[in-house]
């Protein structure tokens, strides 16, 4: 039995490939980007090892299945297997992740965010009420001091609301892989110049340019947040070290190093949780919102990269991001 030329799948935007005798004989660009270029010629189980996928592909009738976690964690793909002939199958994959994440409510998150907003708000209300009192409000020094506190707390609320809004913007486009070519080295220069006069940044790189497929404003935000953390928690007089390395294997590693006190190992796994703080008092004092690293993690995940924090007590902290170079496809599934 014959079937149309698989080359026609080139025009299909969603991942699609043809299997003959248990081996992938043709895969379109979307399928190669999702599953790796190596799948052509490989056993189909190498391409898709999910048991439900294997069952659908090897069954005589074909059929549809839902596969979880195929691309990024929590993603959901619909696999449809059409029978082309006795030993030939057409596999089509559709991304249904957006529906899943919309369905997931962030009840905890809303509760936490409200709590975080209520604390400065309560302080503001308290001080305003005191100032309204004629006795306290009339005293010049008290009034100045209280207004200063009110301003500080209002700023905190403002920073928090800005971070909450950027988190929700990132969430909204979570499943859309960014495509714009962005030069991380140029971007690093830009981000560093924002800190001119506020922090000393030492920049090193092994390449002239490092182009990734990215979202420009989001990547600037990542660098800004990491540099800002290094500035807040690093050693006051020591420079912040920013390095960008392009590896032979087609990846870019961005590292931001400080020489601060470091972070105890038990906090490391939880730093990217929303509102998690290793040292609550200190975070409040330097105006942290508890969302900076959560934002970084979300953006890096959207860029199909990896984010890591390494730290030793007393030896400073290194935040690193690994992203695939433009045109290298996904580097890892998480």
């Amino acid at each position: 039995m014959t079937y149309p030329d698989p080359q026609l799948l080139r025009f299909v935007p969603t991942p699609a490939f043809v299997v003959e005798n248990g081996h992938v004989c043709f895969a379109n660009a979307a399928a190669r980007a999702l599953l790796g270029a190596h799948i052509v010629g490989d056993d189909v189980r190498i391409a898709l090892r999910d048991p439900k996928a294997i069952a659908a592909i090897t069954s005589i009738k074909g059929g549809s299945e839902t596969i979880e976690g195929l691309s990024v964690k929590g993603s959901r793909w619909r696999l449809t297997c059409h029978v082309l002939g006795t030993d030939a199958r057409l596999i089509i994959l559709e991304d249904q992740s957006v529906r899943v994440s919309v369905a997931r409510a962030h009840a905890d998150f809303v509760a936490n965010a409200s709590h975080e907003l209520r604390t400065p708000l309560a302080a503001i209300l308290g001080y305003v009420e005191t100032l309204e009192d004629n006795k306290a409000g009339a005293d010049e020094t008290t009034r100045k001091r209280f207004l200063g506190i009110i301003r500080h707390e209002a700023r905190r609320m403002q920073a928090l609301i800005e971070d909450l809004m950027s988190l929700s913007r990132i969430e909204a486009v979570k499943h859309e892989a960014p495509t714009e070519p962005v030069d991380l080295i140029a971007l690093a220069g830009e981000a560093a110049s924002e800190f001119h006069g506020r922090a000393e940044i030492e920049f090193t790189s092994n390449a002239e340019s490092a182009i990734v497929a990215g979202d420009r404003s989001q990547l600037v935000q990542v660098l800004r947040n990491l540099i800002d953390n290094a500035r807040k928690y690093g050693k006051p007089d020591a420079p912040i070290r920013l390095s960008i390395e392009v590896t032979e294997s087609g990846r870019v590693e961005v590292m931001v190093r400080d020489e601060g006190e470091g972070i105890a190992p038990e906090h490391l796994p939880r730093l990217t949780e929303r509102f998690y703080r290793a040292d609550t008092g200190r975070s409040r004092a330097v105006g942290g919102t508890g969302l900076g690293l959560a934002i970084v993690k979300h953006i890096v995940e959207r860029h199909r990269g990896r984010f890591d924090i390494m730290s030793r007590k007393g030896q400073g902290t290194t935040a690193s991001i690994i992203l695939p170079l433009h045109g290298q496809g996904t580097m890892s599934s998480k």
């Binding site: 056993d43 189909v44 189980r45 190498i46 090892r49 999910d50 048991p51 294997i54």
Partner: peptide, 17 residues
């Protein structure tokens, strides 16, 4: 070899689930 690699992938898929 292809069959060996396929079997490993299949095992891996089951282990992940």
């Amino acid at each position: 070899i292809g069959q060996l690699r396929g079997l490993i992938a299949e095992m891996g898929g089951l282990a992940e689930v």
